[in-house]
């Protein structure tokens, strides 16, 4: 009985999807909130980034939890999808959907698109190999410094602005985060159903919140490349 024996159970597979999904959703919410700091200016965003990097081992623990969650989420979803295709070998000539939404029927495709987008996103902003020319250090003076010390930190603000000033990169990000929104619309409420939290008096609210959170996250994240392209953010760079 290895760890992956959960894959043999349809219910346990779903539970793994829900729990790993929940971890990723929580991360996406925090990540979105962090990204919005770009509107508070260069210093705020760069200090936030420096703070995250100062976490050291904690940052790595979070990263490992996220990577493991993502891997389990992907492996399980692909296994479930192949089984589902096998269970419905003949399609209807005419099909009318009553309740299944576009977003719920395309989870595997939005999921794979998000995977591709996240790989690009990591290469671009985290590992910084796709556009190394956007990588600059920033020299700054700490607020509470007694003497005039000049410190050096990574200029995230500049990297983001230079990245999003390229319309092609911006379009990739806009499509990527809209896909995230589509995925979350179904995902958040689905998580509650799978874990058994569905009663008449609150589930309709959960479904509305699921769509609401998905739209808010997508709008917040779409706003950043658009603001940069329109020059509202980082005009001076």
């Amino acid at each position: 009985m290895g760890f992956f024996s959960y894959l043999r159970s349809t219910v346990l597979s779903k539970v793994v999807m829900a729990i790993t999904g929940a971890i990723i959703v929580l991360y996406v919410i925090v990540h979105t909130a962090g990204n919005l700091l770009i509107y508070l200016g260069r210093d705020t965003l760069n200090s936030y980034s420096a703070f995250l990097h100062s976490l050291g081992p904690i940052l790595w623990i979070i990263r490992i939890i996220l990577i493991v969650s993502a891997i389990l989420h992907i492996i399980t979803s692909i296994k479930l999808k192949f089984e589902n295709w096998r269970s419905k070998p003949t399609k209807y000539a005419v099909k009318n959907y009553l309740k299944a939404k576009f977003t719920s029927r395309t989870m595997i495709w939005t999921g794979l698109m998000i995977l591709a987008f996240v790989i690009y996103h990591l290469l671009h902003f985290t590992i910084r190999v796709t556009n190394p020319q956007h990588y600059y250090p920033e020299f700054y003076q700490p607020h509470n410094a007694v003497s005039s010390v000049i410190l050096e930190r990574f200029d995230v603000y500049r990297m983001v602005v230079l990245g999003f000033q390229n319309p092609l990169i911006s379009i990739v990000y806009i499509i990527g985060v809209i896909t995230v929104g589509f995925h979350l619309d179904h995902a958040i409420q689905s998580m509650f159903q799978t874990l058994g939290y569905n009663q008449k008096h609150y589930f309709p609210t959960i479904q509305k919140c699921s769509t609401g959170i998905a739209i808010i996250i997508a709008l917040c994240l779409v706003s950043i490349p658009i603001s940069v392209m329109l020059g509202f953010v980082g005009g001076g760079i």
């Binding site: 159970s9 349809t10 219910v11 779903k14 009553l98 309740k99 299944a100 409420q189």
Partner: peptide, 22 residues
């Protein structure tokens, strides 16, 4: 019952709720 359901080759649930509507 869940074990038998799986043996019969039914698919997995994706919470699309199409069943409830139909």
């Amino acid at each position: 019952m869940v074990e038998q359901m799986q043996k019969e080759g039914f698919g997995n649930c994706s919470n699309m709720y199409e069943c409830e509507a139909a």
